[in-house]
Amino acid sequence: MSKKKKWSTVMMTMLSLFLFAGIASAHVTVQPAETTQGTYEVFTVRVPSEEENVTTKSVQVKVPEGAAVSRVQPKPGWKVELEKTAENAIASITWTAEGEGLAQTEFDEFRIQGRVADDAKELVWKAYQTYSDNTVVEWVGADGSDHPASVTTVLAGTAEGDAHGAAAAVSGDNAAVPSDSDSSTDAVTLWLAIAALAVSVIALIFVLARRRKA
């Protein structure tokens, strides 16, 4: 085989892999891909429409173990339905298009807010995408399958900060006292500022002296 044909074959193979990867990645996902234990997070459900001659009419997302969803952002053009448990916790969210839905070349995003459990390791988001011909694609498989569920990796949390992820304010007898290291850092910063000012003054005097001689 000539070098030209070999190069053509390589290029075609790379193009095929690229196109296949693009098709394979076009599935329902939940962002972010990583979060932290014990924090409140805004999750974004991204829904692309893939089938020809039909539209995506609705998508249902099951709230995974390790997450407690408390709010859903309103979405113009879509009706939201919440399924709740006996304990009044949100178990799933379903968005249904009030119009024609999403065509093959379109996608949309839906946002929800919730708290990540303190002991969560990963959040497995199972989603069910319904098309206008009543076909349902179940995004519930393992990673690498034809229809994988989206997974959010949960990193270990820290002991600092409140449940909303912001640093907790401490007052009274428990108020934080500056450490010796903090005081030392402030002193160094002050002396550096004084030194910089002194250098600037010397440079200015030097420039004025040269001008007078000129």
Rank of each mutant, 00 (worst) to 15 (best):
F18S: 14
A21V: 04
A24N: 08
S25H: 12
T29L: 14
V30R: 00
P32K: 13
P32L: 10
E34M: 03
Y40Q: 09
E41Q: 09
V42I: 09
V42C: 07
T44P: 11
T44M: 10
R46P: 09
V47I: 04
S49E: 05
S49K: 00
E50M: 12
V54M: 10
T55K: 03
K57I: 06
S58L: 04
S58K: 06
V61A: 13
K62V: 13
V69R: 11
S70W: 00
R71M: 14
Q73D: 10
P76D: 03
G77K: 11
W78L: 13
K79N: 13
V80D: 01
L82G: 11
L82Q: 13
L82Y: 14
K84G: 06
A89V: 07
I93A: 00
I93Q: 10
T94M: 13
W95Q: 01
T96Q: 14
A97W: 01
A97Q: 10
E100K: 10
E100C: 04
E100W: 04
G101A: 07
G101V: 05
A103V: 15
T105R: 12
E109D: 15
Q113S: 11
Q113C: 04
G114A: 06
R115H: 07
V116M: 02
V116A: 03
D118K: 15
D119K: 06
L123R: 11
W125R: 02
K126H: 14
A127M: 10
Q129F: 00
T130D: 01
T130W: 00
T130G: 00
Y131A: 09
S132I: 02
D133V: 07
T135H: 08
V136W: 04
V136L: 12
E138G: 08
E138M: 11
W139R: 07
W139N: 05
A142L: 09
A142T: 14
